[in-house]
Design a protein around this nucleic acid. Structure first.
Lengths: 139, 139
DNA sequence: TTCATTGCAAAAGCTTTGCATGTGT
DNA sequence: ACACATGCAAAGCTTTTGCAATGAA
């Protein structure tokens, strides 16, 4: 996923390539870990961008549609997103008190899932595992 | 979990056993599957109850605390709850073509998760595993 | 009597939308 | 020029809260 893909996608939908969309795309591309719309907005503001919250909210669905990000979880009452990176799948532990998200990856766990799917003749494409509980600090 | 437990819990917290709390408790006890606060409110209204939304919102945390229900997922932008039934946890395979849901349970998988959480000092309360792909028929 | 509880309506917080203006094609 | 995009402020929704009245212990 690079800017070229993004632009082709935008064009092919009959939409327009604009400065604001570019700024948002770039910022998300540079983002590691989770973010919510407000954080994204603030980060752009700090960099001197003049985007509005409305544009953030209007662009996020496009980024989801093109597969750049996905909605992870609504911890409190707002949405959280995360960049999809083909090379680094991982699962999540989510603290029910402070909302912290701990990413982890377990090859054994992945293999186990593959086995279970084989047994059921289910062709696995992707999965999502979220463990809810209390982080070290909040217990 | 029965009304006796509920009343003891309420009393032991120095709170009061009221008609409204009873009504809400009864209604949740009779609920199968997921619900959100609005649905619960409407169902009570239809049965002639005079509860207010405020009481629904104020009582739900008590029901969560006593373990009658748990927050399942914020699908859209509002909270969803589900009655806890100790005997039947399971995970899901979801067919991306026909939408079929296959439930499964793997003790090994559960144990593995417990281990991972221990390693991170994360106190696990619940989890949700969803595998997306194609079922036997749809491949 | 004494606090907790309730309902109401107002407030709060996140997200969406109408509209006039601006901009890519 | 035309259609889509943008910002702003207002509206929408779910959830929370202050307050006066009510009710349980």
């Amino acid at each position: 996923m690079n800017k070229e893909d993004f632009r082709n996608f935008i064009s092919s939908k009959g939409l327009k390539i604009t400065k604001k969309r570019d700024e948002i795309f770039d910022e998300v591309l540079n983002t590691k870990g989770h973010f919510d719309p407000e954080e994204l907005y603030m980060r752009l503001k700090q960099k001197g961008s003049k985007v509005s919250r409305a544009s953030i909210y209007r662009t996020i669905p496009l980024l989801v549609e093109i597969g750049l990000i996905e909605e992870v979880e609504r911890v409190d009452k707002h949405a959280h997103y995360e960049r999809v990176s083909a090379d680094s799948h991982h699962d999540h532990m989510i603290c029910m008190k402070c909302g912290k998200v701990i990413e982890f990856f377990s090859p054994t766990l992945e293999m186990l899932q593959d086995e279970i799917c084989q047994r059921e003749n289910f062709h696995k494409i992707r999965h999502s595992l979220e463990i809810f509980g209390l982080c070290k600090q909040c217990q």
